[in-house]
Design a protein around this nucleic acid. Structure first.
Length: 949
RNA sequence: GCCCGAGUGGCGGAACAGGCAGACGCGACGGUCUCAAACACCGUUGUCCGGAAGGACAUGUGGGUUCAAGUCCCACCUCGGGCACCA
C-alpha cells in the first residue's frame, strides 16, 4: 500500500473560521466563566441560598427534567434532548425576566449498579460515583445552565435521610375516609382512646392489650406490612410492584418471568388516594394521553356490591350494571375463589378440581391469550338472585379474575359480551332486561320479536327495561340507565342485599425490595414482631457494608422459602439495642430496602433547599417555588419534561407521596408537577450483515440507496440507540467534531420536541455551516478582526430583523425551537447576502436571540461586541411594532380557486376597498380577460378569488 | 378487539386560526476557489409535459362540505403507542 499522504492542510483553512477547534475553545472558556461567576446560581427567598433582593420583581419559574439514572455506559445523543430543550427554554425565560430554577440530580439507587457490584465485587457506591462524575463531565460540555449547588443524588446520605423521613410521615399517618385526607396517626389513637371512634370489636380502647391496640393502629397506617399475593421475580431475586410488571408477566427491568406468590411485604395505601389521583388530573396541564393512562391504571368504576345467598354462604359480587340484575341467570367464580370448595357438590368435585389445577398452572397471561373460547365448569351449587328469588347455577371459569372486584360475578348474558359467550358455550339461560332499539335488530337482520337467546350477541347499549320488576322494585319501561342503577342500589341497601359502591383496578403499592442498593427502612421490630418507627433523631439509617450483594436464589415454584435480602446477612446491623424512650431494648431492623421510585417521589423538592439539614425543604422556600399562584390552583413544578415511559410509575407514585405531604401540611402544593411535557425520542438506524449480526453503524456507507459495510451490503433497520445494535453516537463525539453549540442546534432543529425522529450524523453539518456563516458576519476569518460596524441597517434589513425577533420570541414561548432556528437561519442568510459585516445593534439582537440555543457562541459574540458581562440576563430584544407591518403586501390572485398571479396591494384596506383595488388592478383585469365574473371572494391581506364562468 | 397519536419531495421537517403547500436543513446536480481534492462559498432542485412562456398533477386511499381543504366531516388502509376477559 502507498504511504500515508501528508495530512490535509489545516493551514489553508482560515485560522479564525468557526471550526470544531475554535468552538471548543470558546465553549470551554465560557463554561469556566459561568462556573467561576456562579452565573446560574438561582436565588431563594430565604435560607442558605437566599438572596431576597435578587428575586424582587421577578416571577419565579421552576423548570425540571426527569433526572437520569447514571448508567455505566454514559450518555448517548438521545439522552440530552430534553435537557437541551429545557435549557433553551430556561435561558429564554431568564432573558424574559423570570427567576428560573433549573438543576439536575441523579436517581442513583437501583439495580444496574448493584448488578455491576455483584459482577466486579466493588461497592455500588464506587461505581455510582464514577458514573455520576462521568455524567457531570459529559453534561458540562453541553453548556447547560444548571445551578450545580442543587445537584443532589438520591444515594447521598443527606438525601436519603429525608426519603426515610418521608417514609415515616407515611407510616405515621392514616387516611380519614370522611375527610378524604391523611392525618397523623396519633390523632387516630386519640380518637380511639376518647371513644370518638369505636374499636372494631366495640370493646373500650383501654381494655385492649398493647398488641391488640397496635394491631388496630397498624391496620390503618398508610405504610403497612401486608401478606398478599405479590409479583415474585426469581431472575432479579426480588418482588416487584404491579407497575413494574409488563402485560406478559415479565419484569420491566431485565425481562425475567414474574410469578404470583404470597409474601410478607411493605405496602403503601395508594388506593386510598385513588379518587383524588383521578379527580385532580383534571386540574393538571398534562398531555391527555398520559392522563388517560393514569385513569385507566386507576380504573375507577361506579357500580354496586350485591350479595347472592347460597348454601355455602353469601357470594358477593361487584357489578357496574346493577340495573341488569334481573337478567343475572348464573354466577361465575374465579378458580381461586375461597367459596369454590364449599359450593362444589360431590358429583362435580373431580371436574372442578381438575379445572382449578389447570387454571393454577396457567399464568395470568396465558389466560388472557388470544384464544377466544371460554372454558369453565359447573360447581353443582346454586345461589339465589336477590331480585328474582330464582335459584341460579354457580360456575367456575378463568375469565373471572380473582384480582379484580370480589373474584366473583353475576353473569348477565343478555347484557355482557363475555357472559353471553359463556352462556352460549355452556347452553345457559339468557333473559333480556333491556329491549334494543329497532335499528339494532335491523343491523343484525333479526326480528325484534326474536327471543334473546337467538341474538347473535349481547346488547350493551341503552334500551327500555323489560322483565325487570318484582313486588318492591320496578324498573320496567323507558328510563335512563343512571336512574335504573340508582333505583336498584337503593333497593339493595333497603333490602340489605348490597349497596352502591365504586371499584378500582389500582392495588396498594408494593414498597419493599429484597436488594441491597436502596434506602434502608427506618423501621425496627420489637419483641412482639411488630414494627416501630426509628425516631427522627436517629435518621438516617445508614446502609451497612456487606460482603455479598447477591439476592438469594429461590426456585420460581418455591412457595415457602422467604427470600433473604443481603442486609439480613449483617447481624450486627440487624440486631441492635436502642433506647427509644423506654430504656434500652433489643430490636431487629427491617432488612428489605425501598424501591428505586422512593427517591424520585420527592427529589424535585430537594432541589429547592438542597443543604437544609433540619427539614427536607424549608416551608417558605417550598411555597415560593411550588405554591399555587392563583387561588384554587394545584401548584407544583411549572414545567416538567421527560419521556412517556413513566406515565404510571414515577408520575403516579410521586403524586401520591406529594398528596400525603400536602395533607400533613409539609408542602403548600397539592400536586408535584403542574405542567408535564413529553419529549419524543431520538431513534437511530442500525445495520445487520447477512448473518444478522449488527455492524458498526458509523462505518456503514450509503450508495444509491443501498448500505455497505466493508464492501458488503447490509440491511438497515430503525430503532432505539444502544450498545447491542452498535449504533451509539455520543455527545462527546459531537462536541469533538462539531462543538456543543452545533450539537445543541442540531438536536433542537431536528423536529418538534414532542416527536420522535431519527438521528443522522450526516445532517449535523448544516447547523455548523449556519454558525460559521453567522460568525463570519462578526469576525474576519483570517485576521479575527471585528466586522461589526455602525452603518445603520437598511429598511429591508430592519424589517427582517423585527419579524425575526417577533417570530422567534413566539416560537420560544411555544417551545417550537425547530422553527425558531429556521427563522434565525433566514435572518443570517439575509444578512450574509449583504455587503460585509454586521451593524452593532443588529449584531446585538442576533446574539441575544441566539443565546438560548447556542449560548457559548452568543457569549463570545456579545463580548466581541464590547460587553463585559454575561449575555445570560440581557433582556430578549424588543421588536419595533412599526416595522412588523408592511405598507404593501403581495397577495395571490386566484381564478376559480387556482393561483394565476400575484399583485402588490396596500396593507390595511377594509374588505370593500381591498376588493375594488384588486379588481381595478391591470394584472387582474388581464387575468379575467373579459369573462363574466360570477363571484368575487376578497380576503383582505391574503388573497382574491374570482369565479368566472 | 378497544382507546389515543401520526401518514406532506430522495431524507428530517414547515404551513399561526379553512386562504399562495413544500419554510429551514440534509442530500443530489451545476459552478467558484484549488495542480487536484477536502473544507468553504454561489446557484438549481416536488413530479410530469414543454425549447421557453406556460400548463397539468401533487399532502396515505376513496367520498363529502366550501369560492377555497394538508387543515373540517364520513369510510377505509398503513405505521407508532397504550389497554387488553377489569364484570
Amino acid at each position: 500500500m502507498s504511504e500515508t499522504p501528508a495530512t490535509p492542510t489545516a493551514a489553508e483553512t482560515p485560522p479564525y473560521r468557526y471550526s470544531a477547534e475554535l468552538a471548543s475553545h470558546i465553549e470551554l472558556r465560557w463554561q469556566d466563566f459561568w462556573e467561576a461567576n456562579g452565573t446560574f446560581h438561582t436565588p431563594n427567598p430565604s435560607g442558605p441560598l437566599g438572596e431576597p433582593d435578587k428575586i424582587q420583581g421577578r416571577e419565579k419559574l421552576f423548570i425540571l427534567d426527569m433526572f437520569p439514572y447514571p448508567s455505566g455506559a454514559g450518555l448517548h445523543v438521545g439522552h440530552p434532548l430534553g435537557y437541551i430543550a429545557t435549557d433553551v427554554f430556561a435561558r429564554y425565560k431568564r432573558m424574559a425576566g423570570f427567576n428560573v430554577l433549573h438543576a439536575l440530580g441523579y436517581d442513583a439507587f437501583g439495580l444496574p449498579a448493584e448488578q455491576h457490584a455483584i459482577n466486579t465485587g466493588t461497592h455500588p457506591r464506587v461505581n455510582t460515583e464514577q458514573n455520576i462524575t462521568n455524567y457531570r463531565r459529559q453534561l458540562r460540555r453541553l453548556g447547560l445552565g444548571h445551578d450545580d449547588r442543587r445537584s443532589v443524588a438520591t444515594t447521598d446520605e443527606s438525601f436519603y435521610k429525608f426519603t426515610q423521613w418521608i417514609f415515616l410521615q407515611v407510616f405515621n399517618s392514616f387516611f380519614d375516609d370522611n375527610r378524604k385526607v391523611a392525618r397523623p396517626i396519633h390523632e387516630l389513637i386519640h380518637e380511639f382512646a376518647t371513644g370518638v371512634r369505636a374499636t372494631p370489636t366495640g370493646n373500650p380502647w383501654a381494655t385492649l392489650t398493647d398488641v391488640e391496640q397496635r394491631t388496630i393502629i397498624d391496620g390503618h397506617r398508610l405504610a403497612y406490612v401486608g401478606h398478599a399475593p405479590v409479583n415474585w421475580c426469581p431472575g432479579l431475586g426480588t418482588i416487584l410492584s404491579n407497575e413494574e410488571v409488563t402485560a406478559d408477566n415479565k419484569s420491566d427491568i431485565g425481562n425475567f418471568p414474574v410469578f404470583k406468590r404470597n409474601m410478607r411485604q411493605w405496602m403503601m395505601r395508594i388506593t386510598k388516594y385513588a379518587d383524588r389521583l383521578v379527580d385532580d388530573l383534571d386540574r393538571l396541564d398534562w398531555p391527555e394521553s398520559i392522563k388517560l393512562m393514569q385513569r385507566n391504571w386507576i380504573g375507577r368504576s361506579a357500580g354496586a356490591r350485591v350479595r347472592f345467598a347460597s348454601a355455602a354462604g353469601d357470594i358477593e359480587v361487584f357489578t357496574t350494571r346493577p340495573d341488569t340484575l334481573f337478567g343475572a341467570t348464573f354466577m361465575v367464580l374465579a378458580p381461586e375463589h375461597p367459596l369454590v370448595d364449599s359450593l362444589t357438590t360431590p358429583t362435580q368435585q373431580k371436574a372442578v378440581a381438575a379445572y382449578r389445577a389447570t387454571a393454577a398452572d396457567a399464568q395470568d397471561f396465558e389466560r388472557q391469550s388470544d384464544e377466544r373460547t371460554k372454558t369453565g365448569v359447573f360447581t353443582g351449587g346454586f345461589a339465589t338472585n336477590p331480585v328474582t328469588g330464582t335459584s341460579i347455577p354457580v360456575w367456575v371459569a378463568d375469565y373471572v379474575l380473582m384480582g379484580y372486584g370480589t373474584g366473583a360475578i353475576m353473569a348477565v348474558p343478555s347484557g355482557d359480551t363475555r357472559d353471553f359467550e359463556f352462556a352460549r358455550q355452556f347452553d345457559l339461560p339468557i333473559v333480556a332486561t333491556q329491549m334494543p332499539p329497532n335499528a339494532w335488530f335491523a343491523e343484525r337482520a333479526i326480528a325484534p320479536s326474536a327471543d334473546c337467546s337467538t341474538w347473535p350477541e349481547a346488547f350493551v347499549g341503552e334500551g327500555s327495561y323489560v322483565n325487570s320488576a318484582n313486588d318492591t322494585l320496578d324498573l320496567n319501561g323507558d328510563r335512563a340507565m343512571a336512574d335504573a342503577k340508582t333505583l336498584t342500589n337503593g333497593w339493595l341497601t333497603a333490602q340489605d342485599h348490597g349497596y352502591g359502591t365504586t371499584n378500582y383496578k389500582l392495588r396498594d403499592w408494593l414498597f419493599s425490595r429484597q436488594r441491597y442498593w436502596g434506602e434502608p427502612f427506618p423501621i425496627l421490630f420489637d419483641e412482639t414482631g411488630m414494627p416501630v418507627a426509628v425516631p427522627e433523631s436517629m435518621l438516617p439509617v445508614l446502609l451497612p457494608e456487606v460482603d455479598d450483594y447477591r439476592p438469594t436464589a429461590i426456585a420460581a415454584d418455591d412457595e415457602t422459602t422467604e427470600p433473604i435480602p443481603p442486609l439480613a446477612r449483617v447481624p450486627e446491623w440487624v440486631n441492635v439495642t436502642l433506647d427509644l424512650g423506654e430504656g434500652p431494648k433489643a430490636y431487629r431492623r427491617e432488612v428489605n430496602v425501598m424501591p428505586q421510585w422512593a427517591g424520585s417521589c420527592w427529589y424535585e423538592l430537594r432541589y429547592l433547599d438542597p443543604t437544609n439539614a433540619d427539614a427536607f425543604v424549608d416551608p417558605d422556600v417550598e411555597r415560593y417555588w411550588m405554591g399555587p399562584r392563583t387561588p384554587g390552583a394545584t401548584g407544583g413544578v411549572d414545567l416538567y419534561v421527560g419521556g412517556v415511559e413513566h406515565a404510571v410509575l414515577h408520575l403516579l407514585y410521586s403524586r401520591f407521596w406529594h398528596k400525603v405531604l400536602f395533607d400533613l401540611g409539609h408542602v403548600s402544593s397539592q400536586e408535584p408537577f403542574h405542567r408535564l411535557f413529553n419529549q419524543g425520542y431520538i431513534q437511530a438506524f442500525a445495520y445487520r450483515d447477512d448473518r444478522g449480526q449488527p455492524v458498526e453503524a458509523s462505518d456503514v456507507v450509503e450508495r444509491d440507496g443501498k448500505y455497505f459495510f466493508e464492501g458488503a451490503e447490509v440491511a438497515r433497520e430503525y430503532g432505539k440507540m444502544g450498545k447491542s445494535l452498535k449504533n451509539i453516537v455520543t455527545p462527546d463525539e459531537m462536541c469533538d467534531n462539531y462543538g456543543a453549540d452545533t450539537f445543541r442546534l442540531y438536536e433542537m432543529a431536528m423536529g418538534p420536541l414532542d416527536a420522535s425522529r431519527p438521528w443522522n450524523t450526516r445532517d449535523v453539518v448544516g447547523m455548523q455551516r449556519f454558525l460559521q456563516r453567522l460568525w463570519r458576519l462578526y469576525v474576519d476569518e483570517h485576521t479575527s478582526a471585528s466586522l461589526v460596524h455602525a452603518t445603520p441597517p437598511s429598511q429591508a434589513t430592519a424589517k427582517v430583523l423585527a419579524r425575526t425577533i417577533d417570530g422567534v420570541r413566539r416560537d420560544f414561548e411555544g417551545m417550537r425551537f425547530n422553527t425558531a432556528i429556521s427563522k434565525l437561519i433566514e435572518l443570517v442568510n439575509h444578512l450574509t447576502g449583504l455587503e460585509g459585516g454586521i451593524n452593532q445593534s443588529v449584531g446585538e439582537s442576533l446574539a441575544q436571540m441566539l443565546s438560548p440555543l447556542a449560548p457559548h457562541t452568543a457569549e463570545e459574540l456579545w463580548a466581541r461586541l464590547g460587553h463585559r458581562t454575561s449575555i445570560t440576563f440581557e433582556p430578549y430584544p424588543p421588536a419595533d411594532p412599526a416595522l412588523l407591518v408592511d405598507d404593501e403586501i403581495e397577495i395571490a390572485v386566484q381564478i376559480n380557486g387556482k393561483v394565476r398571479g400575484r399583485i402588490m396591494v396596500p396593507s390595511g384596506l377594509n374588505a370593500g376597498d381591498f376588493e375594488s383595488f384588486c379588481l381595478a388592478h391591470a394584472d387582474v383585469t388581464a387575468l379575467v380577460d373579459g369573462k363574466a365574473v360570477r363571484k368575487v371572494v376578497a380576503v383582505p391581506g391574503r388573497l382574491l378569488n374570482i369565479i368566472v364562468g
